[in-house]
Design a protein around this nucleic acid. Sequence first.
DNA 1: ACCATATATCTTGATATCAAGATATTTTGA
DNA 2: TCAAAATATCTTGATATCAAGATATATGGT
Lengths: 165, 165
Amino acid sequence: MNAMDHVDKILTQWQQQRPDLNVAPMGTLGRLKRLNQSLMRRMEQTWAVYGLNDSSFDVLATLRREGPPYALSPSDLMASTMVTSGTMTHRLQQLEKAGLIERVKNPADGRGFLISLSEKGFALIDEAIVAHVETQAELVSGLSDEQRAQLDALLKQFLNSVEKQ
Amino acid sequence: MNAMDHVDKILTQWQQQRPDLNVAPMGTLGRLKRLNQSLMRRMEQTWAVYGLNDSSFDVLATLRREGPPYALSPSDLMASTMVTSGTMTHRLQQLEKAGLIERVKNPADGRGFLISLSEKGFALIDEAIVAHVETQAELVSGLSDEQRAQLDALLKQFLNSVEKQ
DNA sequence: ACCATATATCTTGATATCAAGATATTTTGA
DNA sequence: TCAAAATATCTTGATATCAAGATATATGGT
């Protein structure tokens, strides 16, 4: 419980080397980063079972949860997933090559496209999401429901404050 | 406070499309991921002022906080920073080219090296860490000290449970 | 109607990362 | 002592990402 973890050791080292620095925030941000890294690696294993990774799962899931007709523009997808246009172009190329999405010219705007789930893409994401949710449940099982809710509230406030800054 | 954020909208969409799924963990993990992404981007701006990025800062800071003689093997650095050997080789090449580290053959083990901060590397990281800590303080300023401590405790337990799994 | 500006997307070039395998050296066990 | 296994590091090949710039189309103001 109170045992020193990897991050505590880092803070102790800094305190000894640079006692002038306030390293408390470093502890919080360091754990956040390391936790995220561990969580991502675990989730990637589940995605890999379905031939997916973070990027491809992200796009397919965004289209799936949108509901019928399971279609968005690349710009909408960029906004949802926080990546640049070059990254989204690349992701869509891969997914199109794999036959998981289809693209049609946007009839309402000659500059753009609409990206939609193919039948194959729909079937795949609808199956993968079940395994993904199970993995996530397992990952948070070290916290009680109440602790998870507390964490949720703190993260929500934190995220809100950072995105406003 | 209670306003719907980006993650809440995602959960609502899933609930409507797939009411069979328990998406509560997805909220927590989604906020963690998005928060980490926002935080990293902000910290990168500070590192860039010193010609550094996440990778190079990470290595230099690890050597600096180690204390005299500011030296570790590539393997030690890999363990501290959670990257593969190929990644560490690449990082060290860049840092050596920039004159921020020096490498000598490990006299005690002919297979390995010791990586140490150059004078230039020491001066740079000792300056950059001050700005970095200031940025971190600003990033967490949306939480009270008590909230930050609470978050810290929850993250610590969470991290511990995930790394054990 | 027309031009300037904004928008949607793609292209290019550079960097970081990983997994798998290669090489050199050390350690272990019979 | 010596062969087998372990370890430390590097190399290779593939992928994902970003920033900056290019191209095509749309929109707004005159």
